[in-house]
Amino acid sequence: MQPSKKLKKTKIIVGVTGGIAAYKIPDLVRKLQVNYDVQVIMTKSAQDFVTPTTLSVLSGKNVALSLDVDNGLIPHISLLQDVKLVLIAPMTANFGAKLAHGFADDLLSTLLLKLNCEVPVILCPSMNTQMFLNVATQENLKTLKNRGYEFIEPRTSLLACGEYGTGAMPEITTIQATIDAFLGKSSTNK
């Protein structure tokens, strides 16, 4: 009997920024890695909410954290090889502003500037309601939509700050279903 060939999973990137909703990302990564080859990239501020070790264990690969060249590989170039989709969850107001204005001061923002929406990039804004509704944030989101970024809109619910309003990260099942729809797959782990 011949050994079975392992099916190659579709490669996706999950970018994590520094919002309180980052605590939900380990569960998302655990569920996504069943059907996808998940590469996690974290901003420095995201590491204040969840550890790279946790996401490394759940994704089965090292979490990318910096622009440092490793073995001659430039991370914001090499990590994009064979990527079919990029998800940014949670996406803070700060990261959205950086992205809208072309700032590239960390691995995640540099990678997205290089990528230029060549594959679907799904953004999950997550922040305090007043930050979300702020005219600057709304203009940044409009700019990103006009450039081809996809969005999963934030939920309206009780927020971590104790206020009730729009700004909560979408449910994990919603994010997973959206990724599956973009990639033509069906979730087997809901």
Score class of each variant (00 low, 15 high):
Q2C: 04
Q2K: 07
S4M: 06
K5Y: 12
K6S: 15
K6G: 13
T10I: 15
I12Y: 06
I12Q: 00
I12W: 02
A21S: 12
A22R: 00
Y23H: 07
D27M: 04
L28A: 10
K31R: 15
L32C: 09
Q33M: 09
V34T: 13
V38N: 02
Q39L: 08
I41V: 11
M42K: 00
M42E: 01
S45N: 13
A46Y: 14
F49Q: 01
F49P: 05
F49G: 02
P52I: 00
L55M: 04
V57H: 11
L58N: 07
S59G: 09
G60Q: 08
A64I: 06
A64R: 01
D68V: 01
V69G: 06
N71E: 14
G72K: 00
G72R: 00
I74E: 10
H76W: 07
K84M: 01
V86L: 04
L87K: 03
A89Y: 04
P90V: 01
M91W: 10
M91V: 04
N94L: 05
N94I: 03
G96H: 06
A97E: 07
L99Y: 10
L99V: 02
L108F: 09
S109N: 03
L111Q: 09
L111S: 12
L112A: 04
L115N: 10
N116Q: 11
C117S: 03
I122W: 02
L123W: 03
S126N: 04
M127I: 03
N128Q: 07
M131H: 12
N134G: 11
V135F: 10
V135M: 09
Q138Y: 13
Q138R: 11
E139H: 04
E139M: 02
T143S: 15
K145L: 15
R147W: 15
F151M: 05
P154V: 14
G162C: 09
Y164G: 02
T166H: 03
A168P: 01
P170W: 03
T174H: 15
I175A: 10
I175G: 08
T178P: 10
T178A: 15
A181Q: 14
G184H: 11
S186C: 08
K190D: 13
